[in-house]
Design a protein around this nucleic acid. Structure first.
Lengths: 226, 226
DNA sequence: TCTGTATGTTACCTTTTTGTTATATATTTT
DNA sequence: AAAATATATAACAAAAAGGTAACATACAGA
């Protein structure tokens, strides 16, 4: 994702802070939105879907802690990062902040360089987070983002359907996935495929990953075993 | 196993990280032990037998990768889970980590919620009872998700009808299921099968599970007894 | 467009599961 | 105890389910 596409919501009741922080982050190329209290912050967050919210703890109307809690309740914002602005040495705010679901905190007074580097770090993490779909089962590593797997250190690229099938089965090792379920999750309910389609794909996975990993449960479906 | 009984060894050279991670995991009810470098980590691991080790990659004295390798060599710790703390985007650490025998990794900076949920996921294996669809009766464990049963620690795979019949009878141990009822629930009302079909299936279960577990109630049906 | 890969289909084979039959055994009733 | 009824068992038969190979189609990239 490009910097220009990243929105940061800045929340503080002191215009000075808004300006100085806003200036520094704009200079870095981020899109800045501001709010002056918790209430406004929650509203704007809901509307604008920022990637990062920088929240002052002490504010009129609704303080940062509460705003944070509110925001964390909004499902569409679950991937949004939240960081607090706290006065130095306010241990309480930090703990309370993490409890409320914050990801980091920045201490006042604000040093522009520290601020910018923290923000960069947080957003880098954001990018990371999006890419975090790694699953390890025994000697098999599945990278859901890159659609590839790693078996005993050897990289294998699987066709999409095979990958998705593997991905489904490994999502709950041991659990038997019924044919219906597989069809639904991998092919989609609308698509109608022949009765042998799943088998064929299982066979291909067996060839590539290993015979023993996929157990047939006759009359029911398939399961992945460790 | 109860949460209070689960020990987590936390290894990082930055006191801040130890504190924040420790705080969050303590809050979840886990027992926390800490170490500041790889050497200490290996020592403490050997002594304390933690269930999970959270290991920073970059540390003085001995880095996380090496510590992990050392720990993996200790037979008594073979069931211990190890997860790394890696800095953003360090693909190298991830691969090297898995190579060294790690089970997962967590990216820095740490997001408390992600941390906690990852830890929970990793430790789930210690809490077997939480699994849904598991039924324990005496020395018999019936796992409806995995379509398998476990008798005195030995795994037995049953064909579908047998599994369903067993599943039905054990759903209310002691209760007599009438033949009609069994036919209805296991075969479905529409299907018409001969009069000896149930008996034959009961016989097969008796062969596999044990004669005494299935009592015939003449003129009525069958029941499962503990 | 051509080419190669991915996906899906078909037909046939093998195995397993399921059900039936005939007979033996047990239980109850008369 | 004999008859009637119900269940157990073994051997067998039928059906279902899955495996496989070869082929067909779709689709993406050169």
């Amino acid at each position: 994702m490009d910097k220009q596409d990243i929105k940061i919501l800045l929340v503080d009741d002191e215009p000075d802070i808004l300006e100085i922080v806003g200036y520094n982050l704009s200079a870095e190329g981020y899109q800045i939105i501001t709010a002056e209290n918790g209430l406004q912050a929650v509203k704007k967050a809901k509307k604008e879907h920022p990637h990062l919210i920088i929240l002052d703890v002490m504010m009129p109307e609704m303080d940062g802690i509460e705003a944070c809690e509110q925001i964390r309740k909004i499902p569409s914002l679950k991937d949004t990062m939240i960081t607090f602005l706290t006065a130095r040495g306010e241990d309480y705010s930090q703990v309370a902040g993490f409890d409320a679901g914050a990801d980091d905190y920045i201490t006042k007074p604000i040093k522009p360089k520290v601020l910018v580097s923290k923000v960069k770090a947080l957003l880098r993490r954001y990018k990371q987070e999006e890419k975090e779909g790694m699953l390890k089962i025994g000697n098999l590593v599945i990278d859901r983002d890159e659609y590839k797997i790693n078996l005993n250190g050897e990289e294998i690229i699987l066709p999409r359907k095979e990958f998705e099938l593997l991905s489904l089965l490994t999502s709950k090792p041991g659990k038997v996935f019924k044919r219906d379920e597989i069809l639904d999750k991998v092919w989609g309910n609308e698509v109608i495929v022949g009765g042998r389609t799943i088998d064929v794909h299982i066979r291909k996975l067996r060839e590539k990953i290993g015979d023993d990993s996929f157990r047939t449960v006759k009359g029911v479906g398939y399961k992945f075993v460790d």
